[in-house]
Structures are given as C-alpha cells and as structure tokens.
Write a protein that binds this DNA or RNA. Structure first.
Length: 288
DNA sequence: GCATTAGGATGTATACGCCC
DNA sequence: GGGCGTATACATCCTAATGC
C-alpha cells in the first residue's frame, strides 16, 4: 500500500472532472478532499469504508460522497497477488457545487435538493431503477462538454432528489477526523485490519502499531469511528463471511474459521448481530 | 453430521476519572 | 490529546442440548 496519506484534489478550473480508472488493484489510502465524488465501479469487488460505514462492493456499485468525507476502498486479497489477472475499472466523477449560492439553495423549489445534499454529506449508495437511470445520464455526461456536462450532473442530482432508492452510508453521528495525523493513523489501522482480519488480531499489537497504550487506543478509535475496535474487526469479518456464503461448497463452520472467528457460537452471534438473520438463513435466501 | 442456541467460566476490552 | 489505574461490561470459549 502506498504511503499516500492525505489527498486533496484540486479540481482544476472545471467544476466537474471525470477520471477513468483502469488498474490492477486499488491502492489509494484512506483520504478525503474538498470535492464531491461519484464512483461507478464497473469492474472489481472488495470492501469500502465511507465515514464509519463498512460494506462490500462489487461490479455496478454506485456511490456518491460529500466533501471532506474520509473514504477508502480495498479489493479482495487475490487482486494483490503478483500473478493476479484481475483488474479494476471504474468511472470516478469529482465535482464542486460551490457555485450554487445561498439564494439558489434557499429557494422553495430546491427543498428536496437540499435534503439530498445533506444525505450525500454522509455518502449514499444508489440502487434499483434509479441506479440504472443515473448510469444512463452518467454515460451522456462522459461524452459531453461545457455547460451540457453541468446540466447532466444536475439531472442526476434532480433524479436522486425524487427517489428513495438510495441509502446513506455513514451514521448521522459520524464526525470527520479533519486532520492529516488522524487520517494517517486511522488509515494505518484500517490497513492492518484489512490485511489480517482472517487471523488473530490483538488489541495490544494494534495499539502498539498506533504508538498508544491499549486504553488510549480504545478511546481514540471509538472517538474517531463511533465504534469499538472489536466491533470494527467483527464487522469486517462478517462482511467477508457474507461473500464466502455465496460459495456453495463451503460449510458454515468452514466460513466461520476462514473469516477469522475461532468458534461457531461467536460467529453465529455476531452474524445475527450485524445481518439480523442466521448464516444458514442468509445462504437459503441466496437460493431464492 | 451439521447448525443453532443456551448457560457458565474466564479473560480482556472498554469506560471512566484523574492527571500531565 | 494522551497516559495511567481501576472497575466492570462484554466477548470469547467450552460444553451440552436440541432440531433438522
């Protein structure tokens, strides 16, 4: 992982900047910037962290994140193997809305638009028909220039203002770290967990890695992420277990141990805690 | 045989208050 | 903001029972 710790994208002289990503694997660290960011993942899968939300992503994943919202994406392990033939393709759109002044945003007609922008501050995941419609407009945006590009962007935001087919990613109580040292430290912790969650992860070792005592580390981690370190690790493990459950020839106990849990009881309890149903029900639902 | 649940024992992660 | 000491809530492990 590159030690790039803080990325601030200055979006040139344009209010919309589109980047086509075509790489072997994702290596960007946890970062945030002043621009809105829309990511349409056309190829690759893995896990993404947006604010305090952790979730799996796969091909077709479409998210929009607000300014200064810390985020990072990790591919599945096989992407980082030297002989891997996997690849990542995505369309990333950065945009600014600072040209929309208070007079515009204060108008009665844009009430829903303001609500959408508030939701986007926390990051949103778009699904259903709305996702298809957004992607259609996004494809038009990609080939357009000048004012038309802005009109297409506004069309996307207008469409999302009138739909319920999106869910907010980070929680309402989430607060951004907003300083480089915090992002640097949290990134180091996230990386460590993402690379080691299938094995034993000791709190003591992780705290030492962050140059803290265990007590300080716990307080620090909870303060920055709104969740305990154990909660975070378990959430990552259950997310991975969900992926493994798609694999039909693995038993639930095999998945339990491959996800980093040491016993089935604890696995089942945590699975129900995060997913609300048992692993076997989850597997059964996949077949419906 | 496998998955799930429950209960008890144990260890540790966390919260809290205080201090620098 | 971060370290230290302490109490305790919680996670984990183990075992047993039950159901499919």
């Amino acid at each position: 992982m590159q030690p790039l710790l803080f990325e601030t994208k200055t979006v040139l002289q344009e209010s919309i900047f589109v980047k086509e990503v075509n790489v072997k694997c994702l290596t960007n660290p946890l970062h945030f910037h002043n621009e809105y960011e829309m990511v349409w993942m056309t190829k690759s899968n893995g896990r993404r962290i947006v604010g305090d939300s952790i979730a799996n992503f796969s091909e077709g994943d479409l998210i929009i994140m607000g300014p200064n919202l810390p985020h990072v994406m990790y591919n599945d392990k096989e992407y980082y193997e030297s002989d891997s033939d996997r690849e990542v393709k995505a369309i990333v759109t950065y945009f600014r809305l600072d040209w929309l002044n208070d007079n515009f945003l204060g108008a009665n007609e844009v009430g829903k638009f303001n609500d959408l922008l508030k939701d986007i501050q926390r990051g949103i995941h778009i699904y259903g028909k709305s996702k298809t419609q957004v992607v259609t407009i996004l494809n038009q945006l990609l080939i357009s220039t000048g004012l038309k590009r802005i009109i297409h962007l506004l069309s996307i935001l207008d469409l999302l203002s009138g739909t319920k087919e999106y869910k907010c990613l980070s929680s309402t109580g989430y607060t951004n770290p907003h300083n480089q040292k915090d992002v640097q430290r949290i990134d180091k912790i996230y990386n460590y967990v993402m690379n080691n969650f299938t094995q034993n992860i000791s709190l003591e070792q992780t705290a030492a890695m962050a140059n803290m005592t265990t007590a300080s580390f716990c307080k620090y981690f909870k303060g920055r992420t709104q969740k305990t370190f154990t909660h975070f690790v378990n959430e990552v493990r259950i997310g991975y277990a969900c992926k493994l459950l798609y694999n039909d020839h693995l038993t639930i106990s095999q998945i339990c141990f491959q996800s980093g849990f040491n016993n089935l009881t604890n696995f089942n309890r945590n699975f129900k805690r995060f997913i609300k149903i048992s692993p076997s029900d989850f597997k059964r639902n996949l077949k419906l």
